[in-house]
Nucleic acid binder design. Structure first.
Length: 127
DNA sequence: GTTGTGACATCGC
DNA sequence: CGCGATGCCACAA
């Protein structure tokens, strides 16, 4: 039995976060808020409280995420990589996957933003 | 038991 | 579009 039988707490939330992050296709990025909204709020937690600190729980889960979780595809709402040791490495990994950064070190969520579907990235027709 | 901080989001200017 | 301020939960010291 998976560790999902654990009592309703943040621990299970982390498992859900990791599972969802694993579902992020290559060359696609998701924001903490997006993941927080996609995941169901833990029982006993107010929706407002979840909205306020849901994304932060996701970040906390990423801090302890296993090595088999593409944490690199998780970025903040600004489409930027949060300042943390290894941020440069994350950018390298994303570029390797095809995710391009702007001159402001930001990613176009409109192109690489993961909508939760398995569809492939849209072709840049803005040019 | 208290204090401080965190891999964020949202609103206002 | 960028910057500042606010909100709120869990964990570590």
């Amino acid at each position: 039995m998976p560790a999902f039988t654990s009592p309703p707490n943040v621990q299970q939330f982390q498992s859900l976060v990791w599972d969802l992050v694993r579902r992020i296709p290559r060359g696609r990025v998701a924001t903490y808020g997006q993941i927080a909204l996609m995941l169901p709020p833990p029982p006993g937690v107010d929706v407002e409280a979840y909205r306020a600190f849901g994304p932060r729980w996701v970040g906390g889960a990423m801090a302890n995420c296993p090595d088999d979780v593409p944490w690199q595809r998780v970025i903040n709402s600004k489409g930027e990589i949060s300042p943390r040791p290894g941020a440069g490495r994350q950018r390298e990994l994303l570029e390797e996957e095809g995710v391009l950064f702007n001159e402001k070190d930001r990613v176009d969520l409109k192109k690489f933003g993961w909508t939760g579907s398995d569809e492939e990235p849209k072709q840049p027709s803005l040019f």
